[in-house]
Simulated assay, not measured.
Amino acid sequence: MEKETKQNSATQIKVFKALADPIRLAIVTYLKQQDHEVTCGEVGAVVGISKTSGTYHFKLLQAAGLITARKVAREKYVQLDPTTFEQYVTDFYKNL
Rank of each mutant, 00 (worst) to 15 (best):
M1D: 13
M1C: 10
E2M: 11
E2V: 14
E2T: 15
E2Y: 10
K3I: 13
T5Q: 14
Q7S: 12
N8Q: 10
S9W: 03
S9C: 00
T11P: 00
Q12N: 09
K14V: 00
K14D: 00
K14S: 02
V15W: 02
F16P: 00
K17F: 06
A18M: 08
L19H: 01
L19N: 01
A20W: 02
D21L: 01
P22W: 04
P22N: 10
P22K: 08
R24E: 02
I27W: 07
I27V: 14
V28W: 01
T29Y: 06
T29N: 08
T29C: 02
Y30D: 11
L31C: 05
L31D: 05
Q34T: 11
E37P: 01
E37W: 12
T39D: 04
T39E: 05
C40L: 10
G41C: 06
G41D: 15
G41R: 12
E42G: 03
E42C: 01
V43Y: 11
V43R: 11
G44T: 04
G44W: 05
G44F: 04
G44P: 02
A45T: 07
V46Y: 05
V46L: 04
I49G: 06
S50T: 15
K51R: 10
T52K: 11
S53V: 13
G54H: 02
G54A: 14
T55S: 14
T55K: 05
T55W: 07
Y56G: 03
H57Y: 08
K59A: 09
K59L: 05
K59I: 01
K59G: 00
L60D: 02
L60V: 07
L61A: 07
L61D: 06
Q62R: 13
Q62T: 09
Q62A: 15
A63N: 13
G65C: 03
I67M: 07
T68A: 09
T68N: 14
A69T: 14
A69S: 14
V72R: 08
V72W: 01
R74C: 01
E75R: 15
E75W: 10
K76G: 01
V78N: 12
Q79V: 04
Q79H: 07
Q79T: 11
L80W: 09
L80K: 06
D81N: 15
D81M: 05
P82L: 11
P82A: 05
T84N: 03
T84W: 02
F85D: 03
F85E: 03
E86P: 00
E86A: 08
Q87A: 10
Q87D: 08
Q87G: 00
Y88M: 06
Y88N: 04
Y88P: 06
D91L: 15
D91T: 14
F92K: 13
F92P: 07
F92E: 08
Y93E: 15
K94G: 10
K94I: 15
L96H: 07
